[in-house]
Design a protein around this nucleic acid. Structure first.
Lengths: 212, 212
DNA sequence: TGGGTCACTGGCACATGTGCTAGTGACCTT
DNA sequence: AAGGTCACTAGCACATGTGCCAGTGACCCA
């Protein structure tokens, strides 16, 4: 029995991870948390074999940092970092911080189980650095920094008025720019552009940024 | 010099592919098309070494079928299928249809160049079957088929009225269902849910379906 | 038989997005 | 100096989405 805890603040992802562990009888889920800091407490109190930890959790707590501290105090506990962001920086930070393994969440169920088993067996598993596509690669070169700002906010779900206030142009200026961007990218409409950008993970839409 | 044509109807992706080829002096781009059927004509008229072909192109033409025919008539021409959809079905169809290689478009620039070079050298390169995550895995089990239909249409960008007409309930019924779905998935709002679904490629948003 | 929940329907007020048109000042060209 | 393009601003009409609330018939449960 592998005593496991999952730390993941996106319930969507949490459901998925739990489902995968449930399919396999080797795992005993000791706790399912949404805050990395709480995981440290649990690891002090109980003997945990495996911590499956999101890169960033509730209250912006860093799963990488928490994982680092857990490993320091509990050398027998394995830490598997999971992330949806394919980012070389995260990969190198995870390696430097002594995480045992790292898994990109779009790599499929079987792959995760494989990574988990190898991690528990003492192996370190990291994906190949796959440098991600960049936003500007997708447009025919001529997209201005201001337009990138506007696009970023748009994809993250800000309204025209919010973007206008931030970029300090009028609402219609935002509209105009967005129309230009759609045209330059060769998209039929904003919806298609949005899907393409999110699908290619060119802009991270996870919500840590809306300072409300 | 590798005489190459690109067949891709999404200009976004086309820009990206052209950019990659431009960085390398070995390639001569003979044509950039958006319709797979036209590619067959070009391969008849010119000697082409490599066809980089999207799975589905303009007018719903199948890149897989076109690639198959091109290889039949021009055994010297290599066909590399590119796709954004991580789908075992596409993979097996590509293999069965005699495509030389297949590349998932989120696997990065360097990877693509590597796959291209190996393909031109006569190798066959296919990614590991990474079975994709399924929609229902993401919700706590209890999502009805009707709700999946509604969600599918919503993600593809249909309006409430359009969905209502299709599913044969009222506009407010659609709203109610969508709110339920957001709740069951543990999302803060529809925008967050949309991003998560597209990011995980749980629903394909490419537009071949809007029968207009 | 009455009560409660579920899966809606209907509607109002308001927010936000979209299509379109007209105008403006900065800057560039000839 | 005149004309044109660029990157907007302003505003109207309309479409679509959202928050909210009240109601209803089908079904289960006691």
């Amino acid at each position: 029995m592998i005593r496991t805890i999952i730390v993941e603040d996106n319930r969507f992802m949490m459901n998925y991870l739990r489902g995968i562990l449930r399919e396999d009888n080797d795992f005993q889920l000791e706790a399912a948390l949404s805050d990395a800091f709480l995981a440290e407490e649990i690891c002090k109190e109980q003997k945990i074999d495996l911590v499956i930890m999101d890169v960033q959790t509730l209250h912006n707590h860093s799963g990488l940092a928490a994982g680092e501290r857990i490993r320091e105090k509990n050398p027998a506990t394995k830490v598997l970092i999971v992330t949806s962001l394919i980012d070389p920086e995260i990969l190198s930070r995870a390696k430097a911080g002594g995480a045992d393994s790292l898994w990109y969440k779009d790599h499929g169920k079987e792959d995760l189980l494989d990574v988990i088993r190898r991690t528990v067996a003492g192996e370190h598993v990291f994906p190949d650095t796959s440098p991600s596509v960049e936003l500007k690669d997708m447009f025919s070169g001529d997209i201005s920094p201001r337009q990138i700002d506007i696009l970023r906010m748009f994809v993250k779900g800000f309204t025209y008025d919010e973007i206008a206030a931030e970029v300090k142009i009028s609402k219609n200026g935002v509209r105009w720019n967005l129309d230009q961007i759609v045209e330059k990218g060769g998209f039929a409409n904003k919806h298609e552009m949005l899907a393409a950008i999110i699908e290619n993970k060119l802009i991270v839409t996870t919500l840590e940024e809306r300072g409300e």
